[in-house]
Amino acid sequence: MANFGWSYPAGCRSTPYDEPAGPCDVCGQDVDSDACICPECPECGGCGDSRCYVPGKCGLVRSPEQLQARADAEAAWKAEADAERLAFELDPPETW
């Protein structure tokens, strides 16, 4: 087992910084796989930060491609949640 430092608990195999970033706040695409289509903010340098799109902040405006990508991502998330719910209903925890 690798030693990551004295302050990590026993059995810790990675740092908290190694966790996946998750979906983009704006377009909903995976940030780690370069699927995010959001531009870098000219003001703060962030990418995919929904705060940059708030009027009066950095001045970015969502593009039609970002809106469509977000809608597609939300539809996929809903379909995944529905499939999980259906699987749970067909095989409830009592029968596991």
Rank of each mutant, 00 (worst) to 15 (best):
F88P: 01
E19K: 13
A71M: 03
K78E: 09
P39A: 14
G11E: 09
A75Q: 11
S7C: 06
T15W: 04
C38S: 03
R51S: 06
G48H: 00
R51F: 06
P20D: 02
C12F: 04
P39M: 15
V54E: 08
R51E: 11
P64M: 03
C52G: 00
G5M: 12
V54N: 02
G59Q: 10
R13W: 13
A75P: 01
V31G: 00
G59V: 09
Q66L: 01
C58M: 05
A83H: 04
T95I: 15
N3R: 14
L86W: 11
A10M: 13
A73F: 01
G22C: 01
E89D: 11
A2H: 12
D25V: 06
K78D: 05
C41R: 15
G48V: 01
P23A: 12
P16A: 08
G28I: 07
L60P: 00
Q68R: 06
A79W: 03
P42G: 05
V61D: 05
R13S: 11
C38E: 01
G46S: 14
D91A: 13
F4M: 12
A73D: 00
G22A: 01
D82P: 07
A71T: 03
S7N: 08
P23S: 12
E84L: 09
R13E: 14
E89A: 11
S50M: 07
E89V: 09
P64C: 02
E19S: 14
E84I: 07
P93L: 13
E80W: 07
W6Y: 11
E40K: 13
T15Q: 08
C27N: 02
L60Q: 04
G59S: 05
R62I: 06
P39E: 15
F4Y: 12
A75K: 08
D82W: 13
A35H: 09
S63K: 07
G28F: 03
A83Y: 03
L60C: 02
R70E: 02
K78L: 08
C44L: 05
P23G: 09
T95S: 14
C41E: 15
L60I: 05
R13I: 12
D34I: 08
A81H: 07
S63N: 07
G46E: 14
D82L: 13
E74M: 04
C41A: 15
A83N: 05
A76N: 03
C24Y: 00
W77L: 12
D32P: 00
A81V: 06
V31S: 00
S7D: 08
A75L: 07
E94N: 12
A69I: 04
E84Y: 10
